[in-house]
């Protein structure tokens, strides 16, 4: 049984010139303990898809199932981490982490203990009373992470969570997210990461869902079996980068393509960034 099933999701928007199709039939599954990355060119509806998965936005057709149950409202089993951190500047770090918990009907004691626990596991002890403005980007995203984890979601949804961070900080935080994901005593069970950065997807994920230009569909679901930590200068990593890059830029749909294609050319310049 899949943890999450994304079934033939379509999303259209009305416009002056008729209907614009953003997502045109996307399906894939997320298993227990899965780490899935969704990559695709900017504007392909990756973030919209993530919002549809959580139930924050309605699909035009198709459905999302969580443990076989239809997701028809905002799911309590999932929590989102945003590129922009989305912290409340007038609230302390503690209050920001508690923010999503008050709606759960928990006792103040339960909320306080959840907040303490997730402030601790994300390395934020010492900053409980601080305000977001006092924090570096890396620390702010830790708050975003703590806030999401404090609701103990089965699935952590991450929308370009490292894109606003400097390169070294992003490198460290990626590893911390993997560590939290792997820890059986901590949520989440599974992660869905949206990124435009192919290299990031390959550094982190078990499987990469490659989406096409708008109106987007799934070009391929590529398994990544390289052991972690992954060396981005290794041959196998090169080959996968190359393969994903050519999929996206050429947009050809080799749905039955081998997971480990033959690399014939050197990888594209740059860190696999599509923007």
């Amino acid at each position: 049984m899949a943890l999450i099933e994304v079934r033939d999701i379509k999303k259209d928007y009305p416009s002056h010139h008729g209907t614009i199709s953003i997502i045109n039939g996307v399906s894939f599954e997320v298993a227990d303990s899965d780490f899935v990355a969704i990559v695709g060119p900017s504007g392909c509806g990756k973030s919209t898809l993530l919002r549809i998965i959580q139930g924050l936005e309605r699909a035009s057709s198709g459905e999302i199932r969580f443990r076989e149950r239809l997701v028809d409202t905002v799911s309590n089993e999932m929590a989102m981490v945003f590129q922009s951190f989305a912290l409340m500047p007038w609230l302390s770090i503690k209050e920001n982490v508690a923010f999503g918990l008050t709606a759960r009907g928990w006792t103040p004691e339960k909320i306080a203990s959840q907040v303490d626990r997730y402030i601790s596991v994300t390395g934020l002890v010492g900053f409980e009373e601080a305000y977001p403005r006092e924090l570096s980007g890396g620390m702010r995203q830790r708050v975003g992470l703590a806030r999401a984890l404090a609701v103990e979601p089965a699935v952590l949804l991450m929308d370009e969570p490292f894109s606003a961070l400097d390169a070294l900080t992003a490198e460290g935080l990626r590893e911390e997210v993997l560590q939290l994901w792997r820890d059986p005593d901590l949520p989440p069970e599974a992660v869905i990461l949206v990124t435009h950065n192919i290299e990031e997807a390959l550094l982190m994920a078990d499987r990469v869902v490659v989406m096409s230009h708008r109106p987007s569909r799934v070009l391929a679901v590529v398994p990544v079996t390289l052991p972690r930590p992954r060396d981005r200068k290794s041959e196998a990593f090169y080959e996968l980068t190359d393969y994903l890059y050519s999929l996206i830029t050429e947009g050809s749909p080799p749905l039955s393509a081998p997971a480990k294609p033959v690399a014939s050319e050197p990888p594209p310049a740059g860190p696999g960034d599509l923007q």
Binding site: G138, L168, T169, E171, G172, E175
Partner: peptide, 17 residues
């Protein structure tokens, strides 16, 4: 440099065994 950057650097070196 920040503690986050320091840890990122260690992670990076670790990726190279």
């Amino acid at each position: 440099a920040s503690p986050s950057e320091l840890q990122g650097l260690l992670v990076l070196i670790n990726e190279h065994k």
